[in-house]
């Protein structure tokens, strides 16, 4: 069977997003509204505590939270991706990779709603230092990492039921220990910072947006992480690609 993958992926991702907000008054705008509420509340709250310039705070937390939301969405959805597509997996001879690609496209479509919020924040805080090339490099690395992690987690969570609560708890811990809503300079850099890939991914993007610079060490960390993760993801995929249909 020859599948026009791009057309099928695009159509299914669009339908997924449409179904998610069917019968909703504001539809996907809810994504933007909930992110905006979170960013404004946390920025004002932490602004009172640390007395740092509010505009800078808004931009810092906004950029951090919007991109964290993307990676968190991809990982948390990957836990259930095969279960959600069970009827398709059991009916059509399509590689399980198709469903990870579908998740990536749906996540990017959802992300575009938050991107609008980022543009509003840039205008509100009068911050136009963004370097588009550096931003695309940093965000591209984030997409690759999210893709590889979702491929690994989706397979392992389908195989081992313990993985789901483990990852859900880990995501919360990572959100707390990563400087997403708190400034990275308030604590001394340590091993948790150096090994935390989410810190590097978000820092690289933040630097490209807020200062228009390329954060070389974070880019290098992300590249090394991708180099390590790719063979692991390939091995797990090759070993389990034909088993998933029996496990859901």
């Amino acid at each position: 069977m020859k599948l026009n993958k791009i057309t099928a992926l695009w159509y299914l991702s669009k339908i997924n997003l449409k179904n998610r907000y069917r019968n909703s008054f504001l539809g996907p705008i809810w994504i933007t509204i909930s992110s905006a509420f979170f960013i404004i509340t946390i920025s004002y709250l932490s602004g009172y505590i640390s007395k740092i310039n509010m505009d800078q705070k808004l931009m810092y937390i906004g950029a951090g939270y919007i991109f964290w939301s993307y990676i968190q969405y991809v990982i948390s959805k990957s836990l259930y991706v095969y279960e959600e597509n069970e009827t398709l997996i059991k009916e059509f001879p399509i590689s399980i990779m198709f469903y990870i690609n579908k998740l990536t496209i749906t996540s990017l479509l959802i992300f575009t709603h938050n991107l609008f919020l980022l543009i509003v924040l840039m205008f509100y805080t009068n911050s136009f230092n963004i370097n588009i090339i550096y931003f695309l490099i940093s965000f591209g690395l984030m997409i690759i990492v999210a893709f590889l992690l979702s491929l690994i987690i989706s397979i392992l969570s389908t195989k081992y039921k313990d993985i789901k609560p483990m990852v859900e708890n880990a995501l919360f811990i990572i959100f707390v220990i990563t400087p997403i809503i708190w400034p990275a300079n308030i604590i001394e850099k340590n091993i948790i910072f150096e090994l935390n890939i989410f810190y590097h991914l978000i820092e690289a993007i933040r630097h490209s947006i807020m200062y228009g610079t390329l954060k070389i060490d974070s880019i290098l960390h992300s590249l090394i992480f991708i180099i390590i993760l790719t063979p692991i993801a390939t091995f797990i995929f090759q070993k389990n690609k034909n088993k998933i249909v029996f496990l859901i």
Binding site: M1, L3, T7, Y11, L12, L88, E91, F92
Partner: peptide, 12 residues
């Protein structure tokens, strides 16, 4: 109809 046909390899 679109979903089933696309997954069966049909063009739009």
């Amino acid at each position: 109809i679109y979903i089933r046909s696309l997954l069966n390899g049909k063009s739009k």
